[in-house]
Design a protein around this nucleic acid. Structure first.
Lengths: 210, 210
DNA sequence: CAACTATTCAATTAAATTATTGAACAGATA
DNA sequence: TATCTGTTCAATAATTTAATTGAATAGTTG
């Protein structure tokens, strides 16, 4: 094996794994799986990806060994292979937001239009004045959640407003920076007379700091 | 802007940047530029990439804003855009080596065959018994190097053996894990009666810890 | 100004990727 | 065993990407 042969093999192998990150649908799937394991069906439902296409992208991620699967009855449940997958994904997100400021501007524009661009950090939280609220599906809350957070999935929120303390500011969070469930929750809560803001961080960020 | 439109735009933008990492030639170029700025000519010479093709890959990296360029006379000099590029590249390398053990095995096989698989860590270094040796081209040494290291480019090594202390073990390093200049240096030094090993780390690793 | 150097651009070809469709398959349920 | 459900596979078409070649460009040197 010559030096050139060794390098070609090594760089090609790494490029093959990096290629798994090069498609927007797969990135969205990685963000989703960062919040807990999901069946193909759920992945397709939670994204705008067709069922067969979601399966195909999951195959690509599997071939790159970025995800694992287990079978549960006739379902196939996918999850991230290990912590380094989320770390690499975070590093790429970080890099992208640095070199391509339009990402931040797009987010800002989306949130400004909904008046949900205000957010507070975990370190500013004071349980006397704030109530953390996890608006993700219950399964994701059970997989991992921030200490002290209440779980009310955004689609049940309207029916369960009574569970929330009127006198505190509600701090809603969801899957991460690019997830919009917390925005919807904040808008709903405000329309019902609550004080509400988004949380700056997400559980996935918190366990995989930048 | 709907939630879906926002997500599509954000994930597509990030995927576009991630795509820049999905080609083996570009990864080799990133490793090269981690060791200091280079002209297109130098990039092509140091890799197995043709001149026009190197230029093309550099354009791709430029479009993804992973590299910057400056003009010097009639040369165009490329360098990494910022620290986060090297950080993301390191995260990807780390991930790849974890999920794809063949990378490590290939490296090991290459070095075993040359008896250069032995290496020592920076923390084990004791300047009374070891002499650090930087065998990269002089320009890369001047861009950044480890404290206490001597600079003798590997292609000049044979003529400059007299500059090395016979009684110490020579610890050679080059561009990084996948660079083979230190292996060549260790082989040459041993054939001339020196004690020599590779250094585990590289300057790029040292300034961008995993 | 002519010749030279370093680089980029344009055109081409071969190969890979993406999304869609519908068929195939494997496990669970009746 | 027949049927249903969740998933994968195979075939296709549209789009991208990669490498090669040679021409074009911009700055420098004689």
């Amino acid at each position: 094996m010559t030096s050139r042969e060794m390098k070609n093999e090594v760089y090609s192998t790494i490029a093959g794994i990096a290629k798994a990150f090069s498609n927007p649908n797969r990135l969205e799937i990685l963000d989703l799986l960062s919040n807990g394991e999901k069946s193909v069906e759920e992945v397709a439902a939670q994204t705008a990806i067709s069922f067969a296409n979601a399966s195909q992208h999951l195959q690509v991620l599997k071939k790159a060994r970025l995800v694992r699967l287990r079978k549960d009855g006739n379902k196939v449940i996918y999850s991230l292979a290990n912590r380094k997958v989320a770390e690499a994904w975070t590093a790429i997100k970080n890099l992208a937001e640095t070199v391509e400021p339009t990402i931040g501007l797009t987010l800002q524009q989306y949130r400004r239009a909904r008046q949900t661009d205000q957010s507070i950090c975990l370190t500013e939280l004071d349980s006397a004045r704030y109530q953390l609220l996890d608006v993700r599906p219950a399964g994701e809350y059970h997989y991992a959640h921030l200490p002290g957070a209440l779980s009310i999935p955004v689609n049940e929120l309207e029916l369960r407003l009574a569970e929330l303390p009127k006198e505190k500011t509600i701090v809603a969070y969801c899957r991460g920076t690019y997830c919009t469930m917390a925005d919807a929750a904040v808008q709903l809560l405000r329309s019902r007379g609550f004080n509400a803001v988004r949380l700056e961080e997400s559980p996935a960020d918190a366990s995989n700091p930048a």
